[in-house]
Design a protein around this nucleic acid. Structure first.
Lengths: 271, 271
DNA sequence: AAAATAGTGTCTGTAAGACATTATCTA
DNA sequence: TAGATAATGTCTTACAGACACTATTTT
């Protein structure tokens, strides 16, 4: 009987997408009855907030987990580095704004597949006139374009490990918090999802996939056990039949991404 | 050699907390240089957004996972039900607004311990003048006040399974989405954290704790194996030495919440 | 005593850690 | 050939599922 609950809840969730009254009205009403202060917000008197998105775009560059940062072109803080972001248009979905912010910097279209909302950042009181909230997103790509270590528009890739060092960029605002949250989220998602396949180009070898895990988790994994686990999970990767020789050694079998599955049981990082 | 990588990455993520310039300036600058449309937002011309919080407060009522809803007192939608929520004050932290919204309805102060940010909900285009975004929170409490099935101010508890049925309330706006996300989040958190202890009153028996898991997951668990797992996780629960007899049967040992730990390895729900 | 609930012990299966062995390439 | 990397096999350990059995209460 408890089983039924889920379904009905789901159904309900699926619902309520159609035409519905403006959201503002909801908030108004909910607020109105209680000790929340003056109820509702009229056309002139409502608290106004600016919403931005900031994207942590992660990729592997020469085996190191790296993040795309853009350099600021104006005062204050000219020359310091920040996450690519943008103000959300009034009629724009958050995820679309995030994709737009990345595309403007990289030309890379970050598919829906690996663009995930992280959290809202930004407590109040910075700007006296207007509050600014940022919705953090995290995305992974298999292409750190341009490949080398180069520049994209006014952006470039930084090793996640470099960012905090003295020679590193020194992030603006609370972007260090957002980056830290993104890295932890990706570390965690690698345990339970096939997210790692989004970090490497197809076709890939199991060694490539293992090195992606090792780069994100900063741990060495046992190749034999890793292989066993990956191949025992249907839908994780699919063999192409091809092989690849890099420099020396036995040629490795090639794989492409599978249909995408939760890893059950999860592939836990070593303790 | 993969070992070496880890150290630098770890160090990095922890940093970047120091004093920082206002957030608003960040968004301005990031937008300015790129093809994001008109750069920056001036005092008069910025896109204005209203931000609300909506809280999914969950508790166990007679063994069933339940959610606190409030009835709307005004048109449009008078008489329909919604999550408790409020407009975020201009100088207020999001979590504080969430706690305030709950307190206004229940008198219960939801501690920081189990109040978690879920996600941002609300795509654009409802209100032609102003966009409204809602930050969803989820919280658990060990007290479904008032206990019976009763009313709190203009709110009451509903079984999560009731909400979607014909006899249920029919949720306003996209609150069904938020509720579904909250339930899934709690289900998942039960696997990896001690969140379930927040759903039951202290002191509790291992049977109480197990029934909390069973209610949230809608599954029966093997009492013996559950006990073994819980007691094998240091910091999950602490014995009081006391015992409790309910009706019949051997008196059960009593426990209180431990110091709070991640469950490693996780306590996975049955497949 | 019977019924009910709590707690213990133990067998089994699954899967991960460790590591030896074999396979196949380049220099 | 040596050296390097990939792939396979196997032993062991950790832990969860299943379930029998014991313990302690109320009726």
């Amino acid at each position: 009987m408890a089983k039924d609950r889920k379904k009905s809840a789901k159904k309900d969730a699926a619902r309520a997408k159609g035409p519905r009254p403006p959201k503002g009205a909801s908030a108004t009403r909910l607020t109105a009855g209680a000790a929340d202060g003056p109820g509702g917000f009229g056309a002139g008197d409502r608290p106004s907030v600016v919403v931005t998105v900031d994207v942590v775009l992660l990729a592997l560059r020469e085996g190191a987990l790296s993040v795309l940062l853009v350099q600021r072109g104006r005062e204050p803080g000219l020359g310091s580095w920040a996450l690519p972001g943008t103000v959300v248009d009034g009629d724009e979905k958050l995820a679309r704004a995030a994709a737009r912010a990345v595309a403007a910097r990289t030309g890379v279209s970050v598919g829906r597949r690996h663009l995930r909302q992280l959290a809202v950042f930004g407590d109040p009181g910075r700007d006296p006139r207007t509050r600014v909230l940022t919705v953090g997103f995290v995305a992974v790509t298999d292409r750190a374009t341009p490949p080398a270590g180069g520049t994209v528009a006014n952006g470039r890739w930084w090793g996640v490990g470099e960012v905090a060092t003295k020679k590193g960029p020194g992030l603006a605002f609370d972007h260090g918090d957002i980056l830290a949250a993104a890295v932890e989220r990706v570390r965690s998602d690698l345990e339970a999802t096939d997210l790692a396949t989004g970090l490497i180009e197809e076709p890939f070898t199991l060694g490539d996939l293992r090195r992606a895990y090792e780069a994100v988790w900063s741990t060495a994994l046992e190749p034999a056990n890793f292989r066993r686990k990956v191949l025992a999970t249907p839908g994780f990767v699919e063999p192409t039949g091809g092989r690849r020789t890099v420099t020396t050694g036995r040629p490795a079998e090639l794989y492409v991404r599978g249909t995408g599955v939760p890893l059950r049981p999860p592939l836990l990082r070593p303790s």
